[in-house]
Simulated scan of single mutants.
Amino acid sequence: MRVLVIGASGYVGSRVVPAFLAAGCTVRAGARDPASLRRFWWHERVETAEVDVTDARTLPPSLEEVDVVVYLVHGMRSAHFRQVDPAAARQVRRAVDASSATRMVYVSGFVPAGDPGELSDHLRSRWEVEEELCRSSRPVTTLRAGIVLGSGSTSFEVLGQLGGRLPVTVVPGWLHTKVEPIAVVDLVAAVLGAVFSDLPTRSFDVGCGRALRYPDLLRLYGRITGMPRAQLTLPRIPSTVVGKVGSWVCDVPSATLTALIESLRHDMIARDARWRGSLVPATYRPSTVERALQRAVLPVDPAVPPEERDPMGPLPGDPDWAVAAAEARRYSARGIPPRRRRPPG
């Protein structure tokens, strides 16, 4: 089976590609700049393709002799992602319909119940992309996930950098919504299950099975990493202020951080656990939140080749701003408070 991974240079893509290789698939890694893939250890084991989802001309060549397409593109760094993302999905859907591909898999975000018009821009964009892709004549499996835990994940970095860099964590009064994380290794297992399935077009909520409030998740991170922080609740602080403070504290790109924070106004939890039994065996047990956080911050032995390391931990090719795991280990070992490294991008 030949799998085209669109967005292979992103965090989930960097963990999905080696899983497909291990499963015996031929992998075509698609990225806007194929040269950017050279930073990953698996680069020489895959086919590479220039895939710019905003440029329809790049799509037909990348889809030649492809069996399944995995779509992992989210344009939160652009100020116009609400317009760009659905348009890009439309071009991909049309190209897939004209290709040899027999299936698509899309990794999206949780879609809370209610009027889609009331969703944050981030979540509404992902819902609109899902709606567009599902117009395909090919079966489309959508995996809806919330916070993805693992060193290098944007949501893990936000959690770790917000939760570890200030002596007191300021919590807005509205930030008591529920979240249900998932370890990246479990999300990867769901992606593989979807690719090898013969299901009709369908969406699945994928989570760890435990929902907790975001302030409790911050406390749990502090306890596991040895960086407990007092929390101060400010009832009326607006999300725009939270975004600006977060941009000052975090190395995560500011546009991405703002979009993620706005989404935390919604409960981000799975409505069912149908993915277990449909995409993975019913006996599959996803990692607990505690275990996922522990694995994400474990020390890395540089003598171990990257292909043998735990994908929950840091790997070559992770973003330069992915520093939460290293800061947690440094603080835990020496009692040195983590510091911010650079201005927000």
Rank of each mutant, 00 (worst) to 15 (best):
G146I: 03
G146F: 04
I147T: 14
I147W: 06
V148R: 03
L149R: 03
L149H: 07
L149A: 07
G152C: 10
G152V: 05
G152M: 09
S155F: 07
F156Y: 12
E157D: 11
G160H: 00
L162W: 05
L166R: 14
T169S: 12
V170K: 11
V170Y: 01
L175Q: 10
H176P: 00
K178G: 07
V179N: 11
I182L: 12
A183L: 06
A183F: 05
V184G: 03
L187T: 08
L187D: 06
V188M: 10
A189Y: 05
V191I: 05
V191Y: 03
L192Y: 08
L192I: 15
A194K: 08
F196C: 15
S197H: 11
D198G: 15
L199F: 05
L199I: 12
L199R: 04
L199Y: 02
R202T: 14
S203M: 08
S203H: 15
D205I: 00
G207K: 01
G209I: 11
G209C: 13
R210T: 12
R210H: 13
A211T: 08
R213L: 03
P215I: 04
P215K: 07
D216E: 14
L217Q: 00
R219S: 09
R219C: 09
L220I: 03
Y221H: 12
I224D: 01
T225P: 04
T225D: 03
T225H: 00
M227H: 04
P228D: 04
P228E: 01
P228H: 01
A230Q: 12
L232V: 08
T233F: 11
T233R: 09
T233K: 11
P235H: 06
P235T: 04
R236L: 15
R236M: 15
R236W: 15
I237T: 02
P238N: 11
P238M: 05
T240A: 15
T240P: 15
